[in-house]
Design a protein around this nucleic acid. Sequence first.
DNA 1: GCTCCATGCTTACAGCGTAAGCCTATAACG
DNA 2: CGTTATAGGCTTACGCTGTAAGCATGGAGC
Lengths: 229, 229
Amino acid sequence: MSSETTSEGTRRRVPLTRERVVRAAIALADDGGIEALSMRRLARELDVEAMSLYNHVENKGDLVDAMVDDVVSGIELSSDPDWEGAIRRCAISAYDTFLRHPWACSLVMAPRSLRLEENPRLRYMEWLLGRLAHAGFSPELTYRGYHALDSHILGFTMWHLGHSIGADDITGGLSPDDFIAGLVPRLREAGYPQLAEHAEQHVSAPWRESLREFEFGLDLILEGLKQAL
Amino acid sequence: MSSETTSEGTRRRVPLTRERVVRAAIALADDGGIEALSMRRLARELDVEAMSLYNHVENKGDLVDAMVDDVVSGIELSSDPDWEGAIRRCAISAYDTFLRHPWACSLVMAPRSLRLEENPRLRYMEWLLGRLAHAGFSPELTYRGYHALDSHILGFTMWHLGHSIGADDITGGLSPDDFIAGLVPRLREAGYPQLAEHAEQHVSAPWRESLREFEFGLDLILEGLKQAL
DNA sequence: GCTCCATGCTTACAGCGTAAGCCTATAACG
DNA sequence: CGTTATAGGCTTACGCTGTAAGCATGGAGC
């Protein structure tokens, strides 16, 4: 609640700021997905009218850009002299970050506006390219390596997010594991025996299995790069 | 144009069908992106009122599901006895398919509804799992291999789509190459020398370079799987 | 010829992003 | 202090969205 009533009945407002707006928008998107974010809903959350937001944000696109920047700026760009370890840490940090903000990954992959001014996404790209080039990779290998790494980081994360079923409107309130367990017999009788077994394996797989799969692919790329060096 | 005027001034309508609706929707999304698809716009395209579409489609979600099914059903599920070649062909076919329908990839990765009835996405999953299991992989390797392959196919494709700049509203009508070439000096003066060089390499890279990068990652996974077999 | 119903059309509602303009509390300044 | 400028709220309004509800009609089956 952003307003309070004083003894005289007047209101003392917590002033709206760009940062408050962006933070509230991120919170809204974190639980409810990006499609739950509307200017009117966000305004209601901040106890304000929709058009007031436009004093702090150019338009919705600008707001979303700011949200993405805030999330991406949390990705660790280590200065560890060991390039491989630094890149590994960065990749895992990005993976973790996007799992915490599932709406952000697709916006990073497919930005709807090109922004050349200082911003965390460009900083991240520059950092990764710089680490490769400075590690001694040729321009060609730097080019290929960057593509392989960035596509794996964002691609795998996006893939994992797409397959994770956190939304209650799908699971009907059940835990993901219970939900999948209930799916298995239905898949089998629908004529998808392989899929049914696969789903069964998902239930019995240890927690955070997916991080290991992320690292598996990551190390494959890093190993290939090291050999080429 | 779906209506014509006879000599008496009455109209002979080409009857609306689910297939016509879905095909028109795909065409609309193909040029203009999925956000250009609205029921009203689609109706206008078919020379009909928006609500008439609902005689052939339950709601917009149902329409989008049908669009995705149509696209995914075009992916080749080869019965080549050589499992590696078959999977390779399938992966490249999927990559090509999604490049032709850029809006479809993210919908396949992050479906907004769970559909257990017969549908092409499940058929594809079952096929891939079946090919691996039948090739002699253990349940564990089948599980891992499926994840590695599917995440690379969808993840890399999505990543590539996100970075491809076909939209005129970004390039301002320039060809992608000319646009990127114009970007290079701006990146350099904005303090991103590595990015500038990377962009330069993009311009001089041969056409369809990205397919080779897709295959590079794909073969890396297939090679790793073969060794584990 | 009569009935039924599939498939079209019309109207209406709530929600969306945001342009334009108004209102007021505070800051800046003579 | 009074005056004025401005920042940052609020209100109204427009054209867009998906779609619920109900009406109209043309052709099929009896």
